[in-house]
Design a binder for these strands. Structure first.
Length: 373
DNA sequence: CAAGCGTGGTC
DNA sequence: TGACCAAGCTT
């Protein structure tokens, strides 16, 4: 029998077991009610639509980043029917800047499935929720817990960090084996005889503990209800748990972007539905200087292309060096409008809000707009 | 299964 | 200032 301070799971353990933790749920619920968060914009409602919308936006995204987007979406699309009926381009335009654009597409599809196959009402079970586009196991549990008081566990970044520290779970949580062990542990910690309200508070408590006390950098163990039992706290290993992601070199790519300008308008191209910035509107690109000049001529420019300040943008898995080039046309607004189709759009620099434009491209165009005034 | 998928916060 | 990663899901 290992000491309760001994890590009891690792990548090589076939059947991990964990130290006992009496009253984990009761202590967490009590802590959440006294010290947790109760005034986030998506709290104090049982409307599954609002809960779902917030949970999708919060995937891999911090609360402070989500709040303005959540407010915008709720104002424009007050219910699931309004969202389902909206054109895809409107949804993408409103999502622009938030990242992970597959979420926006799945959000829209999910709204349509709820309307067409569930009569406009979100299903109440975790199993049915998890079948909907963009809703995985953890998000389904969050929606079911907050919306219906269901007994289901989440397992997000907060919970992984809390569990790794409190129970001394060793191994990168992104690894399947470690994640599976954490799902088992999280399930085992759910309270057995709790009310709907208590189950909601329990789920919120998991998130709140990880987001406000058991943070990555400097966890505030003095205020933690699990400090007397926490493996990381008792052994001074808060910094080592959870186990960090294995380091990997980030490759660099380079692209040339064409700012084709006619007066106050620029030309945008719709990107392919999958891949980086899928489905968004961006600038025409080429793999080198000469190819870009060729594209400019094909669009009717005289071939005079001038350089703008280059910059780089870092994604999760690669770094992109962007070489913007400026070319000018003088056709006038009326002639430009006739060129627009499903893949091409001439857009006034003052009207970019109507299009889903990637954040770094938006910044480039905004700076250009500013310099033209 | 691991890889692909954005952006901004934080230190 | 670059490293690290956040209320993960899909392929």
């Amino acid at each position: 029998m290992p000491s309760r301070l001994t890590p009891t799971t690792s990548a090589s353990d076939a059947a991990p077991s964990f130290p006992p933790m009496p009253d984990f749920a009761a202590r967490l619920i009590a802590w959440q009610r006294q010290h947790g968060r109760h005034d986030l914009p998506w709290q104090n409602t049982r409307d599954p639509y609002r809960i779902w919308l917030s949970e999708i936006m919060l995937q891999q995204t911090q609360v402070s980043t989500v709040i303005p987007y959540y407010t915008k979406f709720l104002a424009r699309f007050p219910d699931v029917a309004a969202l389902a009926a909206a054109p895809s381009d409107h949804v993408m335009a409103l999502w622009a800047g938030l990242g992970y654009y597959t979420r926006a597409r799945n959000l829209h599809r999910c709204a349509q499935v709820v309307v067409e196959q569930h009569g406009g009402t979100f299903p109440a079970s975790v199993e049915e929720l998890a079948e909907l586009p963009g809703i995985g196991r953890s998000t389904a549990a969050a929606i079911a817990s907050f919306g219906f008081g269901a007994r289901a566990t989440i397992l997000d970044g907060n919970v992984k960090r809390v569990l790794a520290r409190v129970f001394g779970v060793v191994g990168f949580p992104g690894e399947k084996k470690v994640e599976n062990a954490m799902w088992m542990l999280a399930e085992s910690l759910l309270p057995s005889n709790a009310s709907n309200a208590e189950l909601s508070a329990y789920t919120q408590g998991l998130m709140d503990l990880g987001a406000t006390l058991c943070v990555r950098g400097k966890p505030d163990c003095t205020r933690c209800p699990f400090a007397p039992d926490c493996v990381a706290n008792l052994t001074g290993r808060q910094r080592e748990l959870p186990t960090a992601r294995p380091k990997k070199a980030v490759p660099t790519r380079r692209t040339w972007m064409l700012v084709l300008r006619d007066g106050n308008a620029v030309m945008l191209e719709r990107r392919p539905p999958s891949g980086i910035w899928g489905g968004l509107w961006s600038l025409p690109e080429a793999a080198d200087e000469a190819s870009l000049a060729e594209r400019a001529r094909a669009f009717g420019s005289d071939g005079a292309v001038s350089p703008l300040a280059s910059f780089s943008h870092v994604f999760t898995h690669f770094k992109l060096n962007i070489e913007p080039r400026l070319a000018e046309l003088d056709r006038g607004v009326g002639a430009l409008a006739a060129l627009n189709d499903a893949h091409t759009a001439w857009v006034a620099l003052s009207d970019l809000d109507s299009f889903g434009v990637p954040a770094p491209v938006r910044k480039l165009l905004d700076s250009l707009h500013g310099s033209l005034i």
